[in-house]
Nucleic acid binder design. Structure first.
Lengths: 180, 180
DNA sequence: GTTATATATATCATTTCGATATATATAACG
DNA sequence: CGTTATATATATCGAAATGATATATATAAC
C-alpha cells in the first residue's frame, strides 16, 4: 500500500483536490500514515495518466483554482484489487525510543524532560482523537481505528509513568519516600 | 536522528561491521527503527570521510573480508551533540490500519483473517521481546525500551480482541448467543 | 547434487520526505 | 496603514531511504 494507492482509496469516499487529500492525511490518517505534497501531487498526476482517476479544474471565487479528482470505475477495480493483497508490515521510526537506548549517556534532567514531553505529546494526540470522536459522525471502521489509536497511546502513557524510574534511577528514592 | 547518526550511536557500544550493524537493527532495534543495507553502507562511508569513525579491514578465515568500524573521539562528540537535540516525531506507516479504514469494502472472511493474522503477528513480536529478555543481560535502558514494546503490543492485542466486533458486525450475534 | 542459509559488501531504480517557490485572500495587531 | 500570520491551492527538487539485486565464499540440510 503505497501513497498512490491510499490516495486512490480516499477518492472512493468522495471527490477531492490534492490539498484536501493532504488535509485528510493530517487530520484523519496522521495517527497511522503520513504523506507530503511531494508524494501526493505526483501520485494524482500518475493516477490520472493511468485512467484510474479523472480530473476537472474548478475556478473558485477568492481562492486559487482547484483540481478536483474523481475515481473512475477502473480506479475502483484497481483499489479493490490492492485491498485484497495482504498488508505490508508496519514501518516505524521512533527517535524517542532510539534516544532512550542511550539513556545512560544523557544528563538526568534532560532524560526526565524527554519523558515528560513525550507524555504530554501522547496526551495531546489522545485529545485529538477525542475531538475527532465528538465532532463528526463516524463509520464503524473509523471508530475502530480511532479506538485503536487511543488504546495504544494510553498504554504508552501508562507504561512511561509506571516505569520511568527504571531509567531515571533517582526516581526510586522519591518513590520510596512517597511510600514511606 | 537519521540512520547515519544512529549507526554512529551503535558504534559507541562497540566496534562493528556494516553487516553486524544491520543485524543489530534487525534484532534489537526492529521494534522501533529500521534500516537497510542501502542506507547503512553509505552512512558508514560518509562517517569515515568525515572522520567520525575509522575503519580497518580484517581478513578472516573461511569468511569474506570484514570492514570493522570504530568511533573516533570526534565521533563521540558529534553523537553527544545529536543526542542533545530534541527528537523528531515518530514516523509510522501501518498498511493494516489503512486497510481497516476501508473495512466496509472488504468481504467478512477477509476482514476476520486480516485481524487474526495481525493478532498472531503481535504475539510473535511479544515472543521475540521475551526471548531477548531471557537470553542476554540487559542494561536498564534496554529493559525499559523492551518493556515499552511489550506494553504497546499487548495493548494492541487486547484492543483487537475486545473490539473486532465493531467492524466484523456478525460477531455481535455470536457474542450474544455465547452470552445467552 | 542441489537447495537453503549464513557471512560480507555494494549498487541502483524507485519512493518518499522536507523544504521551498509561487500566488491569492483574510484576519489580527499595533 | 503596514506587517505578520494563517489559510487555500499547486508544484518542484535535492536528499534520504527502501527494497531488490549482484557478487563472492562457506556450511548444512536433504
Amino acid at each position: 500500500m503505497d501513497i498512490r494507492t491510499l490516495c486512490l482509496g480516499l477518492l472512493t469516499m468522495g471527490d477531492a483536490s490534492g490539498y484536501e487529500i493532504k488535509k485528510t492525511f493530517e487530520e484523519e490518517l496522521s495517527h497511522f500514515y503520513e504523506a507530503s505534497y511531494g508524494s501526493i501531487y505526483p501520485a494524482l498526476t500518475k493516477l490520472t495518466e493511468e485512467g484510474l482517476v479523472s480530473c476537472r479544474e474548478m475556478a473558485q471565487e477568492k481562492r486559487p483554482d482547484k483540481k478536483v479528482y474523481s475515481i473512475t470505475p477502473m480506479g475502483r477495480l484497481a483499489f479493490m484489487d490492492a485491498l485484497s493483497k495482504k498488508p505490508g508490515r508496519d514501518r516505524i521510526r521512533s527517535d524517542f525510543l532510539a534516544i532512550l537506548m542511550f539513556a545512560d549517556l544523557l544528563p538526568a534532567r534532560q532524560l526526565s524532560r524527554l519523558i515528560d514531553d513525550r507524555i504530554d505529546h501522547y496526551r495531546e494526540r489522545l485529545a485529538e482523537l477525542d475531538d475527532c470522536h465528538a465532532s463528526q459522525e463516524e463509520t464503524p471502521a473509523h471508530q475502530f481505528v480511532t479506538g485503536y489509536g487511543r488504546a495504544v497511546y494510553q498504554a504508552a502513557i501508562d507504561y512511561l509513568e509506571d516505569n520511568r524510574h527504571v531509567v531515571e534511577g533517582e526516581a526510586l528514592l522519591s518513590r520510596a519516600s512517597a511510600a514511606g
